[in-house]
Design a protein around this nucleic acid. Structure first.
Length: 287
DNA sequence: CGTTACCTGAAA
DNA sequence: TTTCAGGTAACG
């Protein structure tokens, strides 16, 4: 569920809370063993015990919790996961799947209704990451870098934005929002964008992700921050989950279709289908 | 490329 | 009761 802005919100909150804190124990609750992807709770417990957290990094939708001995705890929240920092004596919470006990009795809890989330412990963060495209909020995410990731692709632009190998961190909310802001039809072939459209999309991606971070992420259902609080970005969306509501800009009715297997929301008047004027000539091989 | 599976609860 | 869900990997 959480996308780049939600994960970045967690990163920013978590780092000052756990930096310098020592792990006194770790355990996965019964029925959630898959979270560790084949490793055992006791194995992780012995590897983590007595180590101190330092900084927290983010790459796409992945969090990297660095430990002073060089290990990195790589966490992916998937659809419903959340990391919660809870002080000593805080009440138990439903759907807690794993607990990091910290010094002074505080806990870092991994709460995840659907149990899709993952936790890996590695020596370098990259070891736990799949192939990921550029960071859309970094300085090197230029229009050219974006186009390099999209050119030659026949797939719908919506699907291309969701593919983490193209650009890291965009999910269903921010893909729909970025396409609305740039007035692009979600089904337009990714490789068909003209220069003006590329510029618009690039600006829209950065704008919508930055807005999401500014508002502490979007809580449509399960997302909460490190304190269990909701974000505010859901109050600012232009199309996401606003099916049958009037468009803010033109009053046309927002539609919901399925693109690349995902619910897709758009304004048919602001984001019309355009005639292709430029053929896709090459398919860039993916390594 | 699109579809299915992974899980569980909330909403329709 | 059925459908749907901020994600991704594994299918065909």
């Amino acid at each position: 569920m959480p996308e780049l802005p939600e994960v970045e919100t967690v990163r920013r909150q978590l780092q000052p809370l756990i930096a310098g804190r020592r792990v006194t124990g770790f355990n996965v609750l019964p029925g959630a063993e898959r979270l560790l992807r084949g490793r055992s709770s006791s194995e992780l417990d012995s590897l983590l015990r007595c180590s101190r957290f330092t900084t927290v990094e983010r790459r796409g939708k992945y969090l990297g919790l660095n430990l002073e001995d060089g290990q990195v705890l790589v966490v992916h929240l998937r659809m419903t996961g959340s990391l919660r920092f809870r002080p000593r004596g805080y009440e138990d919470e439903s759907f807690t799947r794993a607990v990091f006990n910290l010094d002074h009795g505080d806990q870092l809890r991994f709460v995840d209704v659907r149990k899709f989330g993952t936790i890996d412990l590695v020596d370098r963060m990259e070891e736990a990451l799949p192939e990921l495209g550029p960071e859309p909020l970094s300085d090197d995410f230029t229009i050219e870098a974006m186009w390099h990731a999209l050119r030659g692709r026949q797939q719908p632009i919506k699907a291309a934005l969701l593919d983490q190998r193209n650009i890291a961190g965009i999910g269903n909310i921010y893909a729909d929002e970025a396409l609305f802001l740039s007035r692009l039809n979600p089904e337009a072939p990714a490789g068909s964008l003209r220069p003006a459209e590329r510029r618009a999309l690039h600006a829209a991606i950065r704008q919508t992700l930055q807005d999401g971070v500014s508002h502490g992420g979007a809580s449509f259902r399960d997302y909460t921050d490190v304190d269990g609080a909701e974000g505010e970005q859901q109050y600012f969306v232009r199309v996401f989950r606003r099916t049958d509501e009037p468009c803010d800009d033109c009053e046309a009715t927002i539609r919901r279709i399925v693109v690349g297997g995902r619910a897709t929301h758009f304004c048919p008047k602001c984001q019309p289908v355009r005639q292709r004027t430029r053929k896709v000539t090459s398919n860039r091989p993916r390594r």
